[in-house]
Design a protein around this nucleic acid. Sequence first.
DNA 1: ATAATTAGATTACTTTTTGTAACTAATGCA
DNA 2: TGCATTAGTTACAAAAAGTAATCTAATTAT
Lengths: 110, 110
Amino acid sequence: MNQLCPRFEKAMVLLSTRWVGLILFELLKGAKRFSEMEADLPISGRLLSDRLKLLEKEGIVERNIYSEFPVRIEYTLSEKGKALEPVIKDIQRWAEEYVIADDIHGKEAE
Amino acid sequence: MNQLCPRFEKAMVLLSTRWVGLILFELLKGAKRFSEMEADLPISGRLLSDRLKLLEKEGIVERNIYSEFPVRIEYTLSEKGKALEPVIKDIQRWAEEYVIADDIHGKEAE
DNA sequence: ATAATTAGATTACTTTTTGTAACTAATGCA
DNA sequence: TGCATTAGTTACAAAAAGTAATCTAATTAT
């Protein structure tokens, strides 16, 4: 029935998880703190926290604690995470070429 | 607050829509009928139908009707859809290199 | 004309996932 | 002591996803 390569399917399901792509995009720019990502992305703290835990579990994101005042926690991409850069870059290129700006709040009437 | 390019964000939200990546993967192999995709993908008819309508609306997928007996309807990628090939190929490469087969039914105990 | 076949849409219903806002924990400073 | 700051967590309501069964349209053999 299902003709897909299990690794590919797993990768697709992971990368299709809402907000994961945008979080990867943020982290490709460099280390980020929780609150920076929360400010930059259209996503609530609860979901950001969920997604960061997922990505950490998958070995894509690393969490680094700096015991300063106030405490600073930085998220960075692992090698596995950085290896996703081509995917994100391709999506950026595609978006520039094909996604119509007008259509962004795309709520066509029925 | 939100620092993202609107086109990129829209592309990300679209491509992160569940099953869209797998549907694109199917269609990159060539024209497909509804029932073929339903058989190949781990997705119900209702969702497949929803996603095909979304992709058609976005100009990524084309729906072609052949009035044979019985009627045949084929889905293909538009130019905009075919332009997503690099994204899918990158994900395949990444999956082969980094996704661990063991971990596919990834349900770690808490 | 009517029943059978195929594609795909729709409906009704349950389960998951989201989003929001209020709350907690750890730390150091006034 | 108690307030400010960062980084989350919890509880709960709302939205979306998932399933299976049913429905519709086109065609054609009877």
